[in-house]
């Protein structure tokens, strides 16, 4: 299945993926307008500094045996049978934060005020997720693990 992978050899940790993610999940979907929205749009991706010259952009890995799905008591977090993506139904979310506790990648974001969580949905309205398109160094990649490994080894 297709997922977002990050090539840490190329990632500069610039944060362009974060901004693109927040804009894509805003009401206006425009940079200049989205920063004036209330509530402010929230990103589902993080560009993290690891150590000197190493950064990584992370988000949901859409795990096969997703811990968040197992831990979810309301059934809000689920595996989509067709796409195998880990999806989140915010209407069923009760804000217990168990998914946040169990996710080994810190990929689930808390919306404290609305008492729900947010996570990567792979941008259903786009061909390529916004973060992948925004990546200035092409370190973010959408594809299968096999394709990604091949690209990294060349």
């Amino acid at each position: 299945m297709k997922k977002i992978y990050c090539n840490i050899k190329k990632c500069l940790g610039c944060g362009s993926c974060e901004i693109a993610c927040a804009i894509e999940h805003s009401k206006s979907r425009e940079l200049n307008k989205s920063i004036a929205e209330s509530p402010l749009p929230v990103k589902r991706r993080k560009a993290e500094f690891v150590e000197e010259s190493v950064s990584i952009s992370t988000g949901c890995h859409h795990c096969e045996n997703a811990a968040c799905v197992t831990a979810c008591m309301s059934g809000a977090m689920y595996k989509d049978k067709k796409t195998a993506l880990t999806q989140h139904d915010k209407d069923r979310c009760v804000g217990c934060w168990m998914c946040i506790m169990t996710c080994p990648f810190g990929a689930v974001t808390r919306l404290r005020e609305e008492k729900i969580v947010l996570k990567c949905d792979l941008c259903p309205d786009r061909d390529k997720p916004a973060c992948v398109e925004a990546c200035q160094t092409k370190s973010l990649f959408l594809g299968t693990l096999k394709e990604f490994t091949k690209i990294c080894s060349t």
């Binding site: 610039c14 944060g15 362009s16 901004i19 693109a20 804009i23 940079l31 200049n32 920063i35 916004a130 398109e133 925004a134 200035q136």
Partner: peptide, 9 residues
């Protein structure tokens, strides 16, 4: 494109 959001702002 897309231009860096930090720079644009």
């Amino acid at each position: 494109e897309p231009h860096c959001g930090f720079g644009t702002l």
